[in-house]
Amino acid sequence: MSKNLIFLLLTFLLLGCEEEVVDVNFPQKVKPVVIGFLEENAEIIQVHVSRSFPYLNASQPPSDARELVDTGALVLLYSEPQVVDTLIFDPLNLLYQSAPGTLNLTAGRTYKLQVIQPSGKVIEGLTTLPAKNKITTKAELSYSENKVEVKIDIKDELPGDNFYVVSVLLIDSTNLGQLVYLKDPLTNGLVTDEFFKTGKKINFINEFAFGEFVPNKAVIIVKEVDKVYYQYHKQVFESNMDLDFLFLSEANVMFNSFNNALGAFGSVSNSTSLEINF
């Protein structure tokens, strides 16, 4: 903490500012955690299965996440009534994942994820891959020494709330993958169709030192996601901020798509990409 901040707090201390530990009996719970996302045409799918840990009046959480990972679960993917795949635990990534090339997920279809824990507890979640939707993307780029600005206007054909994740990659002349991944500072790249209905464009403005990296083209990737994907990721990013900026944040009650577990089961479907040369 800076000395000046300490001084400011000291001035309040003169008015009696002090801290003391409060003994509270606020019940702590350990819950299963399941996180998985499907993507149309994906090579593999991955599912994270673990458990939460007591936070208050408890020791610091394990520094190694492996201690919390549930390695003995049975993880099944259904396209009702059939099992589409049985996911195998990968100890390297600490994730359950499908064998490469075994899946053929279809847009518009509903899939069920079933996790059976060694204790016998069953956790189930459903997701529907976003239906076929024609996405048209227009983009404008402006680039200066320390700043890149991207304005994207997305149009689609389906009515209702449609959700997207937008990624902007900047690539230099070597094309060796020196990527700069731009995110909308408000939503971390997550947008909803509501933005477009108002006739406004999404702006990505990032200001940073490029150093020796000089991009010569930008690739804009727009993917349509389901509402679960949108809500879960949006709240994860917000809760990241919550931990970092205590002065300016509100506690997040996290979105969960399971009734009896933390986490989410969502999906990604249509995608479009656009390449613009500087």
């Binding site: 509270v24 606020f26 019940p27 702590q28 719970k29 350990v30 819950k31 955690v33 996180i35 996302f37 993507e39 994270h48 673990s50 458990r51 939460s52 840990f53 007591p54 936070y55 208050l56 959480p61 996440a65 919390l68 994740v165 990624s167 990659l169 991944y181 790249g189 990737i221 993917k223 996601v225 994907y229 990721h233 994860v236 933390l262 986490g263 969502g266 990604v268």
Partner: peptide, 14 residues
């Protein structure tokens, strides 16, 4: 107040 904590994962769309 939290009743617990957990490690979360996110899906990288790229």
């Amino acid at each position: 107040l939290p009743v617990g904590g957990y490690y979360n994962y996110v899906y990288d769309p790229i």
